[in-house]
Design a protein around this nucleic acid. Structure first.
Length: 599
RNA sequence: GGCCCCGUAGCUCAGUGGAUAGAGCAACAGCCUUCUAAGCUGUGGGUCACACGUUCGAAUCGUGUCGGGGUCACCA
């Protein structure tokens, strides 16, 4: 049980004893005490005054006395300022907590419960490589999966690949027309970039043709429709739907190139999936669903044959589910997949990591499920995240202002190399160790930069800020970890064969303020995981681990571990150091970030 | 226009009912013969967009206004 929970229940119990009234945790607040006051935790008394008909002074005194009396082992003292009852936790309790948990790699994590959750993320199109926006998506998806696991859930990571549609055909047509049989191998290009280049080529050609047609006096709208390259593309989409062998073959070949490229990037990012869905398969599921909905009257058909659902009663609009020609639209496949997911995996929650421009779309999906009487409609959670914008404005693929994922990773890794070489601390590293370190630092910086902001908020990607390795950054935390490991190595070395009995007896010296603060922060880790899981918000973990690292660095400069004032202090500080390192590693792992032993 | 999200220091962000609103970056001033200075300490910097309301107490809750964004496609 966490300190906060303990204090809450002790308070409830004491209030009952004093006044004969039952309160719940929600009726009063237990906060951390602000640094300018004495104490560790604060009970805010104001909300209790009216129901108890007491003055703050009396209530504080009575409650403080009783708490101290009944839990003399736990609390050491209290003070009352205005309506705030500040409580101090005894050194013994803190020292105990340390002794029992300092070496527990699972500290703060919950045991597995029966909750099954699927997290769908990344979900790329197969016509162009991944970009900065995908990175935010992937990092959030991975991190929330790890956080939910740490909170005791059984998690399945999935991705839906958007592998069919007009955009894919565009790349295919351009390749047919302009590639002369070139392949990623023959041009030494990463597969997803290779295919993406033909997507760009298509648009260039398309624009050129439109310009020509307009020059010949055609209205722009007509020109857009009649451009030969577009007509060919539309024909290809039809051929694809009809399963024309040459088209299918080309489609498989080009998607194969893209997947190979994606896999490389995923591997470098350290991300993976338990299940990959393909839209080319799921859209059929959706079509069957629409058929059923038509039969039971949930949907209706217009004269042109298109199928609709009326969601105006729920405050939404009429929504198209199937085109007049019977082909499916975006939402069609989602309806099919949602059912499959819940039935195959027996999910308690299905999380979709998708950009916030699709909030409306996801509301429609939920409402459709509700209307069809699907029991899982309310178990759909849209983890929406804001767009990543550049300092110069939005990313637009048409204007070439997209930040490519692979380029960005290279740049971050290069930067970490440059920084490290400038500092000159790693002269004894092998080639292999150096390479690994640069990846760890570069990716760490990038992941932390994108995860430290609340997903819901849109964020601005500032290239200079993102490669900063000081302050509120991944490398700052990695550095703190490496520093602790360095202390531990030194201490071990110095002791040689001497055995330091780290689990020795009682704490007799007073804990210093920084020591207390650190232990209390360490204790909070479990609550942090709970909060991050409940809010589906990795930035909670990022903020916590930064504050922890910051605090440790202050402690580090103030107090020596290896040359502590006494053997007892040395042991306490070693325990604090080990536990801080353990929790930094654990928390960073929840963010998908590795920590180096040395840097 | 309807609906949704956002507005906190020069910049990027925490804080979502409690005490004198906090970090990082940037600026300035200090700290390496002592466990890694990718660090630490300090200074300056705020009408929490605005107004009214609820409350013992509001950056936080409600209503309205202004500003920014998203969405309302037989696009995905």
């Amino acid at each position: 049980m966490s300190f906060t929970t303990l204090i809450q229940s002790a308070t409830i119990e004491s209030l009952k004893e004093l006044y004969g009234k039952e309160f719940t945790e929600k009726e009063f607040q237990v906060n951390e005490t602000k640094p300018e006051f004495t104490g560790d935790y604060t009970i805010v008394l104001f909300s209790l005054l009216k129901p108890l008909k007491e003055s703050p002074e009396n209530l504080g005194k009575k409650l403080g006395d009783l708490l101290l009396n009944k839990h003399s082992d736990f609390f050491s003292e209290y003070n009352i300022i205005k309506g705030f009852l500040n409580l101090s936790i005894s050194d013994d309790i803190l020292a105990n907590l340390l002794r029992e948990n300092y070496n527990d790699a699972c500290f703060g994590k919950k045991p597995l419960n029966q909750t099954r959750v699927m997290v769908e993320y990344s979900s790329p199109n197969t016509n162009k490589p991944l970009h900065l926006g995908h990175l935010r998506n992937i990092f959030i998806g991975w991190s929330i999966s790890e956080i939910l696991k740490a909170n005791g859930n059984e998690v399945y990571k999935s991705s839906i690949v958007n592998d069919r549609g007009i955009h894919i055909c565009k790349s295919m047509i351009a390749w047919q027309e302009f590639a002369n049989g070139a392949t990623p191998e023959s041009t030494h290009t990463k597969g997803d970039h290779f295919v993406g280049d033909y997507y760009v080529k298509f648009n260039d050609e398309y624009k050129k043709e439109i310009k020509e047609l307009v020059g010949d006096g055609k209205p722009e709208k007509e020109a857009e429709k009649e451009a030969p390259v577009m007509k060919k593309t539309q024909q290809m989409l039809l051929d694809w739907e009809n399963g024309k062998p040459e088209v299918m073959e080309l489609w498989k070949k080009m998607n194969g190139w893209v997947y190979k490229g994606f896999d490389e990037t995923y591997k470098r990012l350290g991300t993976d999936f338990d299940q990959t869905f393909y839209e080319s398969q799921t859209y059929i599921l959706g079509k069957e669903f629409v058929k059923k909905g038509l039969e039971d009257g949930s949907f209706y058909k217009k004269e042109d044959g298109s199928v609709w659902i009326d969601l105006t009663a729920a405050g939404l609009d009429e929504k198209l589910l199937l085109r007049g020609d019977g082909t499916s639209v975006y939402i069609t496949q989602d309806i099919g997949l949602v059912k499959q997911k819940f039935e195959e995996y027996h999910l308690d929650e299905s999380i979709y990591v998708i950009g916030d421009e699709q909030i409306y779309h996801m509301n429609v999906l939920k409402e459709i499920c509700r209307k069809l009487g699907m029991p899982f409609a309310d178990k759909i959670y849209h983890l929406s995240y804001g767009m990543v914008e550049l300092t110069t404005g939005k990313m637009k693929s048409r204007e070439g202002t997209v930040v490519d994922a692979d380029d960005l990773i290279d740049e971050m890794v290069d930067t970490s190399k440059k920084h490290t070489e400038e500092l000159g601390k790693v002269k004894d590293f092998t080639e292999k160790e150096l390479k690994e370190l640069y990846e760890t630092l570069g990716l760490g910086a990038m992941k932390f930069y994108l995860l430290r902001v609340d997903p819901k908020k849109r964020m601005i990607f500032n290239p200079e800020e993102s490669i900063d390795f000081h302050g509120f950054t991944g490398p700052f935390i990695q550095y703190t970890y490496a520093r602790i490991k360095s202390i531990l190595r030194k201490v071990e070395e110095a002791m040689n064969n001497e055995q330091l009995t780290i689990n020795n007896g009682k704490q007799s010296e007073m804990l210093l303020p920084l020591e207390r603060q650190l232990i209390i922060s360490l204790e909070k880790y479990s609550n942090v995981i709970t909060q991050a899981a409940e809010e589906h918000n990795p930035s909670v973990v990022a903020n916590y681990v930064f504050h922890l690292a910051k605090m440790f660095n202050s402690f580090y400069t103030e107090h020596s571990v290896a040359n502590a004032e006494s053997e007892e202090k040395k042991i306490i500080r070693l325990q604090i150091s080990i536990m801080t390192a353990t929790i930094i590693k654990s928390a960073m792992q929840l963010l998908g970030i590795a920590v180096p032993e040395r840097m």
